[in-house]
């Protein structure tokens, strides 16, 4: 089993994701340069957080045209696991691997803080080690994390159990006050139709050691590892 972490110019959580997989999960992992067009040999590809191409024009808009994104599309079509974190989530939406888009936070400010998310789907390849309703403590750090989709798409996401995580308070209540950015229906993470592509705004790779304040992010990565082995 092998992970790949894609590096776009401007990615800045690539090294954190790499560290989480290699040093905490103790799994094999490579960096994949954005010019790469072949993902053979990988089982899970991570699109990390950061500011690919400076997030100029629109978050993720330019990165989606990198050669590697063609390969990611094929990889996903073949059923490979893809997870986009923060900027990675934005890129997956721009590339139409996930529905919807991420708008500027309704606070209009960058927000970096620990918060709580509730696990809505406990069978996916990314969350099956969690239980439904479990509250995870994972930080966010973004300026454009306000998830938006058309009402019919939202209905579809709900009906097909494709909402992975929702922002909530520490007791698991999904409230307006616990929504940090104005996301529709408090959505923090979603799945594609096939269930092999996930996107989330919170940073699980930042919550993998007690020393950092939480180990809840490990559940996400360990879910992937167990599903693949």
């Amino acid at each position: 089993m092998k992970f790949g972490v894609i590096q776009f110019p401007g990615s800045n959580c690539d090294q954190d994701a790499y560290y989480a997989i290699r040093d905490v999960l103790q799994q094999p992992v490579d960096y994949i340069w954005h010019q790469e067009s072949n993902l053979a040999g990988y089982d899970c590809v991570i699109l990390p957080g950061g500011f690919s191409y400076g997030d100029y024009l629109r978050t993720g808009a330019i990165a989606r045209f990198s050669p590697v994104m063609g390969a990611v599309q094929e990889f996903a079509d073949r059923g490979g696991l893809v997870i986009g974190i923060c900027n990675g989530f934005q890129i997956l939406c721009e590339a139409h691997l996930l529905p919807g888009a991420l708008l500027a936070n309704n606070t209009l400010r960058f927000r970096c803080k620990y918060l709580h998310v509730r696990v809505e789907n406990d069978t996916s390849s990314f969350t099956h080690l969690c239980y439904r309703g479990q509250v995870l403590r994972i930080p966010i750090a973004h300026h454009s994390g306000c998830y938006y989709c058309e009402p019919d798409v939202l209905k579809e996401l709900e009906e097909q159990d494709r909402i992975l995580l929702r922002y909530c308070d520490r007791d698991g209540n999904v409230t307006e006050q616990s929504n940090p950015n104005g996301s529709v229906s408090n959505i923090a993470g979603i799945l594609n139709e096939q269930g092999n592509v996930a996107g989330m705004m919170p940073h699980p790779e930042r919550a993998v050691e007690d020393l950092l304040g939480s180990e809840d992010g490990v559940l996400i990565f360990r879910s992937i590892v167990e599903r693949l082995s």
């Binding site: 024009l57 629109r58 808009a61 045209f65 721009e94 919807g100 888009a101 708008l103 938006y148 058309e150």
Partner: peptide
């Protein structure tokens, strides 16, 4: 293709 995102 690039300049606008038709979703939003």
């Amino acid at each position: 293709k690039l300049l606008a995102n038709p979703v939003i």
